[in-house]
Structures are given as C-alpha cells and as structure tokens.
Simulated assay, not measured.
Amino acid sequence: MIIKQAEFIKSAVNPSHFPEPEFPEVAFAGRSNVGKSSLINTLVNRKSLVKTSSRPGCTQLINFFNINSNFFFVDLPGYGYAKVSKKIRAQWGPMVERYLSVRPNLMGVLLLIDIRREPRKEEFELMQWLANRSIPALIVLTKADKLSRNKQQKQLAATASMLGCRTEDIILFSATSKQGRESVLEELGTLFSQN
C-alpha cells in the first residue's frame, strides 16, 4: 500500500461527533506512550501529522485522519499509566469501547505493545474483546530499535507465546529506523482490500 496523502480531519469523544462512516477505518490502540502517534507519522512519511509527546497521555481524544481520500486511520487514547487526572483517565475506557462497539466501518485494530514490556491484563482483555466481535487485530511491537536484533527475536518469541499466536503474526516496528514500516503497510493493504 502506498500513502500519497494524509490529513487530520477531526477529534471526537462521542459517536455523534465521529465523521460519517463513508470510508473503511483502522484504529491504533495501546498503552500510553507506546508510540501510536509515531507509528502513524512513520506510515504517512510525515514528522508531525500526529502530535507526539514523551509525556504519557498526550492523546486524550479520538483523532481521525483521512488517508488517500480512501480510508481513515484512527488514533485512540492510550490506556494504562498516563499523566492526567483520574477523572479523565476513567473516561477513556468507555470512550474507546464505545468507538470500537459502534463503528460499522472499522476494519481492524493495530494493537501496539512496547517490545521491552510484557503484554498485561489490558492487552489480553482487548484482544479477547476484539476476537469476540470478529474484529481483526494486528499486533505490532514498537520501539524495536531499543533492543539488539537477538533480544528482539527473544521478545518476539516470548510475546507470541504469551498471546497464543505465531511469531509471523507480529510485526517488529521502530519509528526511528523505520523497521517494519513496509510490513505494516502491507498488512493494512490486505485489510482494506477485504472491504
């Protein structure tokens, strides 16, 4: 898949504010500071289409991006630790679940996990939730450049074992080196071609 054009459309909290579901969408989910925004920026070859921050919890709304005037990337707020109030953090779960539940044009979810961390309760729950609704999930291990090639492979095998999937079903990704960019684009192309 080749991305020629990408533009921010809008941020939303409630389904009434979501864009019309005229294009197929893929959502990017994961913990706060896992690299969702950096992944999107790398895929579209732009440094700052999506605002990035070293401070967890930067993305607090659901952000919609039109890609090639053909489909949408949807950047979801991160879950887990974030430097925001408990009240705001408590609103994220229902907001994200509502989006995932009601969006008729959702083709799949990219579940991002920091390669240096083991999958935890939230990742298992999200994968189960998606599986129960027959929503395809693509697992991406981010920040791969933080580990040597040997350690990347060990983490890949360990993560696959914990999640009960094959290592071939997980993509190693780095926004710094662009490792895995083409693999993610290829998987997205396959996903959107099923529409």
Rank of each mutant, 00 (worst) to 15 (best):
P104S: 10
N105I: 03
N105R: 14
N105V: 01
L106E: 08
M107C: 15
M107T: 09
M107L: 15
M107D: 11
M107I: 08
G108R: 09
G108N: 09
G108Q: 10
V109S: 05
V109G: 04
L110Q: 05
L110C: 12
L111G: 02
L111T: 00
L111E: 05
L111Q: 06
L112I: 03
L112Q: 03
L112S: 04
L112K: 01
L112E: 01
I113M: 07
I113N: 00
D114V: 02
D114W: 02
D114Y: 00
D114R: 03
I115L: 08
I115D: 04
R116N: 09
R116K: 14
R116G: 05
R116M: 07
R116F: 04
R117F: 10
R117M: 13
R117A: 13
R117I: 09
R117H: 15
P119D: 09
P119N: 10
P119I: 04
P119Y: 08
R120M: 15
R120I: 12
R120L: 15
K121W: 12
E122R: 12
E122I: 09
E122S: 14
E123W: 07
E123P: 04
E123Q: 10
E123F: 06
F124V: 10
F124Y: 15
F124D: 12
L126C: 07
L126K: 06
L126F: 14
M127C: 11
M127W: 10
M127F: 12
M127Y: 10
Q128F: 10
Q128C: 11
Q128S: 14
Q128A: 14
Q128P: 07
W129L: 08
W129F: 15
W129E: 08
L130R: 06
L130S: 10
A131C: 12
N132A: 14
N132C: 12
N132I: 11
R133C: 06
R133W: 04
R133I: 07
R133G: 07
R133D: 08
S134C: 12
I135S: 03
I135P: 02
I135R: 01
P136V: 00
P136D: 05
P136I: 03
P136Q: 06
A137T: 08
A137P: 04
A137R: 09
L138F: 14
L138E: 13
I139L: 08
I139N: 02
I139P: 00
L141E: 02
L141P: 04
L141H: 00
L141D: 01
T142P: 01
T142E: 01
T142C: 03
T142N: 03
K143W: 00
K143Q: 03
K143F: 00
K143L: 02
K143R: 05
K143C: 00
A144I: 03
A144Q: 05
D145H: 08
D145S: 05
K146R: 14
K146S: 11
L147K: 05
L147Q: 08
L147W: 04
S148K: 11
S148F: 09
S148D: 08
S148L: 11
S148V: 10
